[in-house]
Simulated scan of single mutants.
Amino acid sequence: MDDDASRALTRYDAIGGQPVSEAAAGAILTIELGAIRENYRRLKARLNGVRCAGVLKADGYGLGAAQVASALAKEGCDIFFVALLGEGIALRKAIGPGPDIFVLNGLPPGSEPEALAAGLCPVINSPVQLKAWRGTARDAARNLPAAIQVDSGMARLGMAPADVEALAGEAGAFNGIDVRFVMSHLARADEPQQAANEEQRREFERLRKMLPAAPASLANSSGIFLGPEYHHELARPGAALYGVNPTPYAPNPMLPAIRLDAKVAQTREIGAGTGIGYGHTNRADRPLRLATISLGYGDGWHRRAASAAWFEGVRLPFVGRVSMDSIILDISALPAGRLGEGDLVELIGPSQSVDDAAGHAGTIGYEILTSLGARFHRRYTGG
């Protein structure tokens, strides 16, 4: 991405193809690319020389795959993973030739020519996908790159052990395939005490010995913290890059990568007994001062997510239900007149993290990040 395009993307986000300026948006999402770069450096330091990819699926966990890829490339990252072919095609257009882009879910039947044209590497998860890519290589009259994924005990993606064993005895099974990596995925890496981690590691070692010799990749974000025996030749962090805690059993070793601030749309004073919001689920037990902010579940803010905003270190609790486009705050703890229309209050930032917000919603930081909506103005810093 050239500098002019990068600067344009720091100023606007697109809604239906139309730019949204900071002045026009109801909330501001600040993405700290400098923090993402530092998180990559911290993970690299733990890997002690092992190569480190960047996982950019779901548009860089909702933060902008192109912008994140550009930032990580400045740290020497030249391998990226996306989930879907469409994501890979879009990322290739954004970042140009050079870095390897692997498609984790593999290629839908019939889409192999599109992947080839975009210079993408499929992650082959089944004998069907293998056969199709082998045929594409034959038609192209050259070897084509791919990763081979095996299911070591998650039952999600990857070749089943029986498939691997069958392929091991099949002559020419990998003809035309340049196997870049053999990989698998850990199901319980964020629970280091679980025996399932070691069971999966051992099964992975068993299965990959039956496949063409190639560098191995097993560790996701949390897997990096399980120790060197899980690192192999390539680690694939995702959420940790974006500030989600990869060690939920311990303090977060990553820097926060986002801040979300919403604008105050209106303030008011109400008397005791006044019903607040849909269904009057809250009724004032005393005179209150309220502020309505321009953010709601239409922006991906879960109705059960963090139940307060913050302003100058003061907690402002939600009152009433979260609406599609707005949330009502009790601002009685602030001096009268201190908060007015257009002022910003913090939803995610120094006062409450992505993981804090997720805890209130009974979910995980991954879901909070990937739910953040398109109506925000997105401000990129530190790239």
Rank of each mutant, 00 (worst) to 15 (best):
A132F: 13
M154L: 10
M183F: 03
S152V: 06
F204V: 00
A250D: 11
L226C: 10
N245H: 00
I224P: 10
A240L: 08
D139T: 13
G153S: 04
A137R: 06
H231V: 12
A166G: 13
C121T: 13
A235V: 15
A168L: 07
P228M: 02
A141Q: 13
E198F: 10
F174A: 05
L218Q: 03
A147F: 11
D178K: 00
A195L: 04
S221P: 05
A214P: 10
R202C: 14
Q200W: 04
N197F: 09
A168Q: 07
A196C: 05
F225L: 08
H232Q: 04
Q193M: 10
M183K: 01
S222G: 11
E170M: 14
A216D: 00
R188P: 03
T136M: 15
A137C: 10
R156H: 11
H231F: 08
A162N: 03
H232M: 10
R206L: 14
F225K: 02
A239P: 09
A137Y: 07
A240E: 09
S221E: 00
C121I: 09
E198S: 02
R180L: 14
Y249K: 03
M210K: 15
D190Y: 00
D178V: 09
P127G: 12
A137V: 05
V150T: 12
P122V: 08
G135K: 06
G243N: 08
R142A: 14
G243T: 10
E205C: 12
L207G: 15
E229N: 10
H232E: 13
P145F: 01
R180S: 11
A250C: 04
T247Y: 05
E229C: 08
R208V: 15
L241M: 04
E191L: 13
H232D: 13
I224K: 07
P192F: 12
P228T: 02
Y242Q: 08
C121Y: 01
N143H: 13
R188G: 02
S222T: 03
S222L: 05
N245I: 02
F225P: 10
F225C: 09
A173N: 01
A160Q: 03
R134M: 08
N197Q: 06
A140W: 03
C121A: 11
G158I: 08
